[in-house]
Structure formats: structure tokens, C-alpha cells
Amino acid sequence: MEFLTLLLVREARRLGLAGQPPHLAPSEALLALGRLTLQELIAQGALPDPEPDIDCWAAPRHPGH
């Protein structure tokens, strides 16, 4: 299994979603899984970051650092 799939499977199990029909799953658990999914897709570059942190790349590093 690839990393993202494994991560999502583990989180779904931790949230008690394994073996449960999606339409009967608690909304809080689905929301948590959805957030993790979006965070990972953004982190892997599959989706654009809606809040990019450009400060760390906006200026070259000072030679003294």
C-alpha cells in the first residue's frame, strides 16, 4: 500500500469508521478524516495550498545563517 492509503486506513480505523457504512458514520469522524485527507493531498502537492506560507521562500537566506 502506498503511504497516503496506509495513513488514511489507519486514521479511519482509529476514528471507528472501518466496516461502517459512510451514511451512518458520525459526522465528526468523517470531518476529521476529510481534513486529514485534504492536508495530505496539499502536502504532497496534489492540490494547491490555499494558504501558502511564502515567507520562508520569499527572500534569500542571509549568508550569516
Rank of each mutant, 00 (worst) to 15 (best):
G45I: 13
G16Q: 09
R13A: 05
T37W: 13
Q39R: 13
D53R: 05
A46N: 12
L15M: 11
L38D: 07
L17P: 04
L38R: 11
T37E: 14
P52I: 02
G19T: 10
Q20A: 04
P52K: 01
A18K: 09
L6Q: 06
I54D: 14
L41P: 06
R14Q: 07
L31A: 14
R35G: 02
R10C: 02
L24W: 06
Q44G: 00
G34C: 13
L33R: 06
Q20N: 03
Q39C: 07
D53V: 05
L47C: 05
T37M: 12
G19D: 10
L30S: 08
E11S: 04
L33W: 14
S27V: 15
D49S: 07
R14F: 03
P21K: 00
A29L: 12
L33D: 11
S27D: 15
D53Y: 06
L6G: 00
L38I: 11
D55C: 02
P52T: 04
S27A: 15
H23V: 06
P48L: 07
L38P: 01
D49N: 15
R35V: 12
S27I: 14
E51F: 06
D49T: 08
A46C: 13
A18N: 08
R10D: 04
S27N: 15
D49M: 05
P48Y: 00
P50G: 00
E40D: 13
L7S: 11
D55V: 02
E11Y: 09
L24S: 08
A29F: 13
Q20C: 04
L41F: 08
V9R: 07
A32F: 08
A12I: 10
L24T: 13
D49Q: 09
H23Y: 05
P52E: 02
D53K: 03
P22C: 02
H23S: 06
L38K: 04
L7A: 05
P48G: 00
L24D: 13
